[in-house]
Design a protein around this nucleic acid. Structure first.
Length: 624
DNA sequence: GTAGGGTTAG
């Protein structure tokens, strides 16, 4: 990997020849100074390049050279070259130098060779092992899934009386993240940190906060966050990203407002978290403000931010804007493609999604697992069943990718929507892993569309075994029973829900109109324009019934929302964003049909939960 | 003149 470095990566804008002559006259300490300067400014590649020149000039590295070089290897994750440097260390007799040993332990720990790190650690005499040495190994263990070994070493430090400091905690704390069950251990570690007086370090605070977030203990995390005295942008980021990843989108937007009012300057990481929450809520207005901020900033070309913008606009239904940003990107990565393809897919434009995917392949970009989820679900929403199946098969044969349960659930959905329920069932039987809730849920959804009660009951039993509190599945089966007039079934589900104390939130749909968000629930009569809305709905139902038998898949609140939207939006407006409509085949058929009849284009965004509403309809709140 | 750590983006 070392030979890949270019001459351009050398320091100074002079020729290699000149540099060589310049450095040949130098003694080792001068080389060391240059090397140190380079790493100080984060120029690790150049540092290694200069080290190579040093060797070519027959200048022997010393105990001051190696820590710098090992650090560079560690940061760049160059284990192969790092091992070569280890040989140089031995040749020059520097292997017993404590600074060099620590560098080696850190290098091996960072590159995943924790066994080698341990070897170096064990070879070092006990009297020479200081806190830094332990810290490097503790962090090495924790990073490489060796939490128990790391914790054991930490206990040994305390038993031996080796000083434990903030950096020890920074290496150890991430090991307490993960499953919810560990949050108690995390809290006890937190107690230790506080007792030791190490909680004053804001890095340790950030680390503890992230630990709670990763445990999914959001309330504990928030309490801790509120109590933290020093909050720098990283602290806010840990909390914002934590909320965003755990689906607390409204909390993210609230926290972002707090951040702004505290005068903290957000960085790209902050904004990515906020944009992803805008995407979830359909809060395009805030997204637009953030885009303005980005365009006027130094990070306007940040690929993560641009991808987040594409994702936000696409999910908010503004595919034109999403595509505009996508096209303007000089550098597109797999995430950019996934965002735009997913966007077209979720709005029923499967053909465009597939076309873009093919274009991506033509550009020699290797697809990965997540992009196949976007492509497969695009195919299933657009009814491109066989194309979707071909893509699924190509995952393994053309790209060597192993389909995960998320891909199987897409294909079950794909087959199921097309009415190929037997094949869907067969596919589940041949899955190389245990089917998860989403797989059985997809089958259940398909059974609902095709009114197959027996198979639906079978899938339902499986899915509630895996996700007993997911109300959606109970509602799905109950709705199917309603459609086939199975009163016993409806009652049975109702009893089950009561026994499990599951309560369904009323389904609602909403439409943005002139700065107000109008919200509808089934059978809603609260809206001031109720009369006109119901008249319009009647007309629409008539139109749809005349043209096709489809359209029955939409619930009442959705149809009310559409009727209202058609009544109120300005003539000449060609894009209408209707929110919280379920993205399903029937829904798209209905929308397409209506837009054809009234000669307007509809964009539909995916379902979302929105907490800030009153009964009936709500006015524009802070977010819109 | 040197060394150890964490947060982050579909």
């Amino acid at each position: 990997m070392f030979h890949t470095m270019t001459k351009q990566s050398l320091p100074f804008h002079t020729s290699t020849k000149l540099i060589s002559r310049h450095f040949q006259t130098m003694i080792t300490p001068s080389w060391n100074t240059h090397l140190r300067e380079l790493t100080k400014h984060g120029n690790y590649e150049q540092c290694l390049d200069l080290y190579r020149q040093m060797l070519r000039s027959s200048r022997a590295p010393n105990a001051f050279t190696f820590p710098v070089i090992l650090k560079s290897c560690a940061v760049l994750s160059h284990p192969v070259y790092g091992t070569q440097v280890h040989c140089h260390v031995i040749k020059t007799g520097c292997h017993s130098e404590p600074f060099v040993q620590t560098g080696l332990i850190a290098l091996y720990g960072k590159c995943g060779f924790v066994g080698d790190a341990r070897k170096v650690f064990d070879e070092s005499p006990e009297s020479q092992k200081l806190t830094v040495c332990y810290n490097a190994l503790v962090a090495g263990y924790v990073r490489n899934d060796g939490f128990c070994d790391g914790f054991e070493l930490f206990c040994k430090m305390r038993a031996l009386g080796v000083r434990v400091d903030a950096v020890t905690m920074l290496g150890l704390i991430p090991g307490f993240s993960g499953e919810c069950g560990r949050v108690r251990f995390g809290e006890s570690l937190h107690c230790f940190v506080a007792k030791s007086g190490l909680d004053g370090d804001f890095c340790v605070g950030n680390c503890l906060l992230t630990m709670y977030v990763r445990c999914g203990a959001m309330e504990v995390a928030r309490k801790f966050f509120d109590r933290m005295c020093v909050k720098e942008v990283g602290t806010w980021n840990a909390m914002i990203s934590g909320y965003a990843q755990n689906g607390y989108a409204t909390e993210v937007l609230e926290l972002y407002k707090d951040l702004e009012s505290c005068g903290v300057e957000p960085n790209p990481i902050t904004l990515v978290g906020v944009l992803s929450s805008c995407a979830h809520l359909g809060a395009q207005r805030i997204g637009v403000d953030i885009e303005k901020k980005i365009r006027n900033s130094s990070f306007k070309d940040n690929i993560f931010l641009n991808n987040a913008l594409i994702n936000m606009y696409a999910r908010c239904g503004n595919l034109v804007k999403a595509k505009e940003i996508f096209d303007s990107l000089l550098e597109k990565n797999l995430v950019s493609w996934t965002a735009i393809i997913g966007g077209y897919g979720m709005h029923g434009q499967g053909e465009t999604a597939v076309h873009l995917f093919n274009e991506m392949i033509r550009c020699n970009i290797m697809p990965d697992g997540p992009i196949f989820v976007s492509v497969l679900s695009a195919c299933s929403h657009a009814g491109l069943t066989d194309i979707g199946l071909d893509y699924f098969n190509s995952m393994k044969t053309n790209y060597g990718l192993k389909p995960g349960p998320e891909h199987y659930s897409c294909v079950v959905d794909l087959l199921g929507r097309a009415g190929r329920l037997d094949e869907a069932q067969k596919l589940i039987k041949t899955m190389p892993m245990k089917p998860d809730g989403a797989v059985w849920g997809a089958l259940l959804g398909a059974c609902k569309i095709h009114k197959n009660v027996d198979l639906a009951e079978f899938a339902f039993d499986r899915v509630i075994e895996l996700e007993p509190t997911n109300i959606g599945y109970y509602v799905l089966l109950s709705n199917l029973y309603t459609e086939v007039n199975n009163t016993d079934g409806i009652l049975r589900i109702r009893v089950m829900m009561r026994e499990k104390r599951l309560k369904k939130d009323p389904g609602y749909s909403y439409v943005d109109h002139k700065g107000k968000t109008h919200l509808f629930v089934a059978g809603d009569h609260n809206h001031p324009q109720t009369k006109e809305i119901y008249a319009m709905l009647e007309r629409l139902d008539e139109l749809v019934n005349l043209s096709s038998s489809s359209g029955g898949g939409m619930v009442h609140s959705e149809r009310l929302a559409i009727a209202f939207a058609l009544l109120t939006t300005d003539i000449g407006q060609d894009i209408l964003v209707i929110k919280n409509l379920r993205v399903c085949g029937d829904c798209h058929v209905f929308i397409k049909l209506v837009s054809k009849v009234i000669d307007r284009q509809f964009i539909i965004r995916d379902p979302t939960r929105f907490h800030h509403f009153k009964d009936g309809f709500c006015s524009c709140k802070d977010y819109w």
